[in-house]
Design a protein around this nucleic acid. Structure first.
Length: 441
RNA sequence: UCCUCGAGAACCU
């Protein structure tokens, strides 16, 4: 079972959960860890139903594979990832019924789930619950999770205060001096964990996304100065930040610097850079870097290929873009709704509505759900092709499918009517947009 | 050997 699990885990990590399941079937006595690994696999690919079924199987099975805290923690995360916090709470109750005691991973999982929903208030309720019911104190993961929650809400200042709290309590001379101050989150100062590289990278990544590179690099330097080792995620964040601001030369320099520090650029580092090069119209370098990535044995993934498809579309090389798209399954790469939408948009932009619509059908046949962006691409393509009536058909179909048109949807149509000189229709849609509580930009 | 925190892709102007 030990050996089986190592392979199963590797398969699940690549999203090959079906194969992992098959492998477990070959194992004469799979243990809890095997089962947990498979439950985890199903959760990460979004197949919660299969995960739950497997856990039920464990419950009625023999003693060696009864679900444990880890099993339920995996389910908690599964529900949180789907945004079904209520489902996670049900799992929580089941744990109690089965006499299992939640640990800090359970609590941190729920806190992260609430943070990702933007509910910091609820996240802190879980924190309080943990402190009052358990012997465990908030750990570094919890602080990092909460920092990230504030970052998501664009309250970077509060995230920074949490970092400061961790720093204060790890410097002995300051311990006990903070008693009466009201701090973010109301933590008791003496039990703070120390920050780690993730604490810093959380802030760095947020500043990079916000285009505040000075701040990002300030924390990078502080991180290094205090003895934390930046990893590929830290550097990828910074490379992305530089690219986003158009500082492509500096991005390249940083990629070299990270290697001199012994950190190997991965597919995320490369993809961030390649994407920026394509968008800047620097096609040759984009391809050169892509080749470098492949030559170095960096494993391609869905995003890397989608970026390549997008770049080829921007170049007008739709045939080549299609070839990459077709080759993805051979490389064991999943094509998701973004991959499809990228190519659909490429076809629309080039006026090839036929292929766009065919690909849209293929997408639905694959069981992938089109989102507003997909529909917007089609609406754009049709209206640009003077098929405004067909565009409006798609527009209606969108609402029928329960997808709300967004402001980009309205922008596309309003723009078209204006270009046709049909200002009246344009205003009609503008009013509809307002009625739907959308904010014009 | 299993669970929790940080990085990259698609639509209009």
């Amino acid at each position: 079972a030990f050996t089986f699990n190592i392979v199963m885990h590797a398969l699940c990590k690549e999203g090959r959960v079906g194969e992992a399941a098959g492998l477990m079937g070959c194992c004469s006595s799979p243990d809890v860890v095997c089962y947990n690994t498979l439950v985890w696999g199903y959760c990460t690919i979004g197949q919660l139903g299969n995960a739950v079924k497997l856990v039920e199987e464990m419950v009625v099975g023999n003693g060696s594979s009864k679900p444990n805290v880890v099993t339920y923690n995996i389910l908690l995360k599964g529900y949180c990832q789907q945004g079904v916090l209520g489902g996670a709470e049900c799992v929580w109750q089941q744990m109690l019924k089965r006499g299992l005691v939640q640990n800090s991973v359970s609590y941190n999982t729920m806190i992260d789930g609430e943070c990702k929903e933007g509910s910091m208030e609820k996240a802190f309720v879980w924190r309080d619950d943990m402190v009052s019911h358990m012997d465990c104190f908030p750990d570094d993961v919890m602080f990092n999770t909460l920092m990230n929650g504030f970052c998501i809400r664009r309250e970077i200042g509060k995230a920074q205060e949490l970092l400061d709290q961790m720093l204060e309590s790890s410097s002995l001379s300051k311990c006990g001096e903070l008693g009466t101050e009201i701090e973010v989150g109301g933590f008791s100062p003496h039990i703070h964990p120390k920050p780690n590289h993730i604490s810093y990278t959380t802030l760095i990544g947020t500043y990079c996304r916000a285009g505040k590179l000075q701040e990002a690099f300030r924390f990078y330097e502080e991180m290094v100065r205090s003895g934390h080792v930046p990893d590929e995620i830290t550097y990828s964040s910074l490379v992305y930040g530089l690219c986003k601001e158009g500082a492509l030369l500096e991005a390249r320099e940083l990629m070299e610097k990270m290697q001199s520090m012994g950190v190997v650029p991965n597919q995320v580092t490369y993809t961030a850079f390649i994407d920026a090069l394509f968008k800047a119209g620097n096609v040759q370098e984009a391809h050169a870097l892509y080749d470098e990535m492949v030559k170095r044995g960096v494993v391609l993934d869905t995003v890397a290929c989608s970026v390549l498809i997008d770049g080829l579309c921007r170049e007008g090389k739709l045939v080549e873009a299609r070839e990459v798209f077709e080759k993805m399954p051979n490389l064991d790469l999943t094509r998701n709704h973004v991959t499809y939408t990228t190519l659909i948009h490429g076809y629309c932009k080039s006026g090839d509505i036929q292929d766009a619509l065919m690909l849209f059908d293929d997408m639905e046949k694959e069981g992938l759900k089109a989102n507003a962006v997909t529909y917007n691409a089609l609406i754009y393509g049709l209206s640009k092709n003077d098929q405004i009536d067909d565009a409006m058909e798609i527009f209606k179909k969108m609402s029928e499918k329960g997808l709300m048109p967004c402001n980009v949807t309205y922008n596309i149509i309003i723009d078209r009517y204006c270009k046709q000189g049909n200002v009246k229709q344009a205003f009609a849609l503008y009013n509809e947009m307002i009625q739907n509580q959308l904010i014009p930009n």
